[in-house]
Design a protein around this nucleic acid. Structure first.
Length: 579
DNA sequence: GCCGTTTTCGGCCCGACTGTTTTCAGTCG
């Protein structure tokens, strides 16, 4: 799968063209194509091979030829030409807040600056303020921009951003008279990583609220402070923006600030066709200029003749078309979750006993919980031997005999060994109502090996669920080299379910892949927290968000079924593939 | 550079803020 790689080079061409001062719509075309390819669920090289690149809307003759060239030869002549006059180092200069393509170009042509280090040096020597159009102020602005990227170590995990935003919102609520308050931006869309935290509110006293905001205990630096918008930087380097709007504009503002940019562009284009204009203050008829709504977010969509679109879907991935046809799926909701099918206890590397995990699950209102401790192949996690599993069974049976409030399923998270076999014998697996299996070692094997390994694991009749199927750790470790399309095929053929692991750094499968698995291969998914302690059961909402971003409904998710239905489904594969 | 119940040319979302200007360019979300 070379999609990211191709998207990257197209994006770079876009920036280079921007720096060069090319037609901005040509620039846009490259950026749009990059985005589409990045989010395309199938391998771009496969599409190219079949001559179907132009199936992707936004890729025409010119781009298709360049992509083909890149996939064939490893480079694009046009790109090489561009970098001769516009060095590619300039791309990273444009990543400094306050430095766009025009300034990057000026810095290079007038001062020969190519790198951020050279820029820092030039600022120290006050060489910027003498440039035409520059002053001490603009120099200072760029210096601050450099500070910000140096502090910012990329995007933070949703699992980190969400509680932080909630803490801020709770604090603001306690200290102000608030009409409406909500997260916005990528946080409201529940993307797996978040750039900065956006909060939107309406209140009778904006000044007071801003005052409270910039005086939060976590504030290290105030980046901006006004009556409608303030930004702060926390000690941990997170930027939080608070915007305050009139109550009657709250819906329009929420729609606008939630994005995504691509969703909004598409929505506005459609609005124009229908004779409406949308901005952050409301929706207006173009002919008489009159405002037709905007107090509620629903107004915007309703007036355009669409269903209200859940924020998680707003990525311009077909949701606008579906909303127009009133065919949006009813997305799975946290309230639909009946249990957690992958948690650990202190029999392996969990922190607490089975009883404590079960009690915590009762608090969540679950019908069932599956204790899936590691198995013997994972010694570092105190994986269980067959004998230990026998021992553990007594404890689980005892719980189930004495408690009716929740059913504890006896399970394991077994290891898929280097050759694809499972690290427990079939006789042992057969006695466990639920077997989750995952790759924990040999993650860097080549594609062929990973594929063979997974094929064998999927074909094991006792393995009903594959945990964290790609093994990725966000910002830390890439997915395994396994071929996803093949993996989906195995899952489909063997009626094996795939996990959406809700751990903040895993969220594996990711949204577009989970959607593809379900839409194209009709694979069922399981949302599991992989908890090693009771409080991690709360991570379920991250997994549910991921599933919603994958357009999944109740019927697609195994752990929305009641206990009886679930046990029946789990039995199916075994009945089909054993005698 | 793409695209078309606005079809083969002429469009391609919208506004705020900043800084440097007398009406706007650049950047950002």
């Amino acid at each position: 799968m070379r999609n990211l790689e191709v998207a990257q080079i197209l994006r770079e061409i876009g920036v280079l063209l921007e720096i060069k001062g090319e037609n901005r719509f040509r620039v846009l075309a490259y950026q749009e194509a990059a985005r589409k390819i990045e989010n395309w669920p199938e391998a771009i090289e496969l599409l190219a091979k079949e001559g179907k690149l132009r199936d992707i809307s936004g890729i025409g003759e010119g781009l298709a030829a360049k992509i083909d060239e890149y996939l064939r030869t490893g480079k694009i002549e046009y790109y090489e030409e561009l970098t001769k006059e516009t060095p590619r180092e300039l791309i990273q200069l444009t990543e400094v807040p306050g430095v766009g393509p025009k300034i990057a170009r000026q810095l290079y042509s007038d001062l020969g600056i190519l790198t951020i280090e050279q820029l820092v040096q030039a600022i120290q020597e006050h060489r910027l303020q003498n440039l035409p159009g520059f002053s001490i102020k603009s120099e200072e602005k760029i210096r601050k921009g450099i500070d910000i990227i140096k502090k910012n170590t990329g995007r933070m995990l949703l699992g980190y951003a969400l509680p932080l935003a909630e803490e801020v919102i709770t604090f603001l609520r306690e200290n102000n008279q608030i009409d409406n308050i909500s997260t916005a931006g990528s946080l409201r869309r529940m993307k797996e990583t978040i750039g900065d935290i956006d909060i939107l509110a309406s209140t009778v006293d904006a000044n007071r609220m801003m005052e409270a905001f910039i005086n939060l205990p976590m504030v290290k630096q105030i980046i901006a402070h006004g009556t409608t918008k303030s930004s702060i930087l926390t000690y941990e380097g997170v930027q939080i923006d608070l915007r305050v709007v009139d109550n009657q504009c709250f819906g329009a503002a929420l729609q606008y600030f939630t994005g995504s940019k691509e969703h909004n562009v598409k929505l506005r284009e459609y609005a124009l066709k229908k004779g409406y204009k949308i901005n952050e203050y409301g929706i207006y008829r173009i002919d008489d200029g009159k405002r037709r709504g905007g107090e509620k977010e629903e107004d915007i969509y309703q007036i355009l003749g669409m269903e209200w679109i859940p924020p998680e879907m707003r990525e311009d991935q077909g949701e606008i078309e579906a909303a127009l046809q009133k065919r949006l799926p009813i997305l799975v909701d946290i309230k639909d979750i009946q249990g957690d099918l992958h948690v650990h206890s202190n029999w392996s590397d969990g922190l607490v006993s089975i009883e404590e995990m079960a009690k915590a699950a009762v608090q969540k209102g679950y019908q069932y919980i599956a204790i899936c401790d590691h198995s013997q192949g994972l010694a570092v996690a105190s994986g269980l031997t067959p004998e230990q599993i026998q021992e553990r069974r007594k404890e689980i049976n005892q719980w189930n005999q004495n408690h009716s409030e929740i059913f504890v399923l006896e399970g394991v998270e077994a290891n898929i060994l280097g050759d694809g076999s499972i690290d427990l014998p079939d006789e042992v697996l057969a006695q466990l109502p639920i077997v989750v299996a995952g790759i924990h070692t040999g993650l860097s094997q080549n594609t062929e090996k990973i594929n063979q390994r997974l094929e064998k694991a999927f074909k094991n009749p006792y393995v009903q669920i594959i945990s964290h199927p790609t093994g990725r750790l966000i910002n830390k470790r890439d997915s395994t080299q396994g071929d996803l399309a093949l993996l989906f095929k195995y899952a489909q053929q063997t009626t094996t379910a795939l996990e959406i692991n809700a751990q903040p750094e895993r969220l594996d499968l990711k949204d577009i892949d989970a959607r593809q698995a379900n839409e194209k291969y009709q694979i069922k998914l399981v949302i599991s927290t992989d908890s090693h302690d009771p409080s991690s059961l709360n991570l379920m909402r991250l997994g549910v968000a991921q599933a919603r971003r994958a357009w999944l409904t109740n019927k697609d998710i195994l752990n929305t079924y009641n206990k009886g239905q679930l046990l029946e489904i789990l039995q199916k594969k075994r009945e089909r593939f054993t005698i």
